[in-house]
Amino acid sequence: MRLPTEDAVWEGMRRRHAEAWSIWRSDGGRWYATRLTGALTQAELDAGLVMTACGGDADELGAILAEQERFTGQALSARSGRP
């Protein structure tokens, strides 16, 4: 059974990442996020970006998404030739 606090955390994460990720929880309690921005290039995948992220809880998934956002910024800078 989901607790109201879990629903509030999910809603907050969903709003925070609405432009880039679809976030959900599995029946088993794991947290997932899938990119909404389309397919990644092979170079982006090689750089460590993922299409779908999974965490054991909201904090773990949040940390993964923050890391992915840093990687995304680096990949876009490399693609455009900016440092």
Score class of each variant (00 low, 15 high):
residue 27 D to W: 12
residue 70 R to Q: 10
residue 54 C to P: 00
residue 54 C to A: 09
residue 53 A to T: 01
residue 49 L to M: 14
residue 7 D to M: 11
residue 11 E to A: 07
residue 70 R to A: 07
residue 35 R to T: 08
residue 20 A to Q: 05
residue 77 S to A: 09
residue 71 F to P: 01
residue 39 A to L: 03
residue 57 D to A: 03
residue 69 E to G: 15
residue 61 L to V: 12
residue 53 A to F: 00
residue 54 C to S: 12
residue 26 S to Q: 10
residue 5 T to S: 14
residue 37 T to E: 12
residue 12 G to Q: 13
residue 81 G to T: 12
residue 5 T to Q: 14
residue 71 F to Q: 05
residue 45 L to W: 09
residue 42 Q to T: 15
residue 45 L to D: 12
residue 13 M to R: 02
residue 40 L to N: 06
residue 35 R to I: 02
residue 21 W to A: 07
residue 38 G to M: 02
residue 20 A to H: 09
residue 80 S to L: 05
residue 75 A to Q: 04
residue 18 A to F: 11
residue 4 P to N: 12
residue 48 G to N: 06
residue 81 G to I: 11
residue 19 E to M: 03
residue 59 D to C: 10
residue 67 E to M: 13
residue 78 A to Q: 03
residue 15 R to I: 08
residue 57 D to V: 06
residue 23 I to T: 02
residue 57 D to E: 09
residue 83 P to V: 07
residue 28 G to R: 03
residue 42 Q to I: 15
residue 25 R to W: 01
residue 45 L to G: 07
residue 43 A to L: 09
residue 83 P to T: 08
residue 40 L to Q: 09
residue 2 R to F: 01
residue 28 G to T: 14
residue 48 G to L: 04
residue 42 Q to K: 07
residue 39 A to C: 00
residue 37 T to V: 11
residue 72 T to P: 00
residue 52 T to I: 09
residue 51 M to W: 07
residue 43 A to P: 00
residue 17 H to D: 11
residue 66 A to I: 07
residue 17 H to P: 00
residue 26 S to G: 14
residue 53 A to G: 05
residue 77 S to M: 11
residue 59 D to I: 15
residue 12 G to I: 03
residue 66 A to C: 06
residue 3 L to T: 11
residue 40 L to F: 01
residue 79 R to P: 00
residue 40 L to K: 04
residue 13 M to G: 00
residue 29 G to D: 09
residue 29 G to L: 04
residue 8 A to D: 13
residue 72 T to Y: 03
residue 72 T to H: 01
residue 30 R to C: 08
residue 35 R to P: 02
residue 16 R to P: 02
residue 3 L to W: 07
residue 4 P to K: 11
residue 24 W to V: 03
residue 81 G to P: 08
residue 43 A to C: 02
residue 55 G to K: 10
residue 2 R to K: 06
residue 78 A to E: 13
residue 49 L to E: 04
residue 71 F to T: 04
residue 82 R to H: 06
residue 65 L to S: 04
residue 52 T to W: 04
residue 17 H to Y: 15
residue 58 A to T: 07
residue 59 D to Q: 13
residue 57 D to W: 10
residue 40 L to I: 04
residue 12 G to R: 15
residue 42 Q to M: 12
residue 36 L to C: 05
residue 52 T to D: 08
residue 53 A to Q: 03
residue 16 R to T: 14
residue 13 M to N: 01
residue 64 I to V: 15
residue 63 A to F: 10
residue 51 M to H: 07
residue 38 G to D: 02
residue 71 F to M: 12
residue 83 P to D: 09
residue 27 D to R: 15
residue 69 E to I: 06
residue 73 G to D: 12
residue 20 A to Y: 00
residue 41 T to G: 08
residue 29 G to F: 02
residue 56 G to P: 00
residue 31 W to F: 12
residue 66 A to D: 15
residue 71 F to D: 01
residue 4 P to E: 13
residue 13 M to T: 01
residue 54 C to L: 09
residue 19 E to L: 08
residue 33 A to M: 02
residue 51 M to C: 08
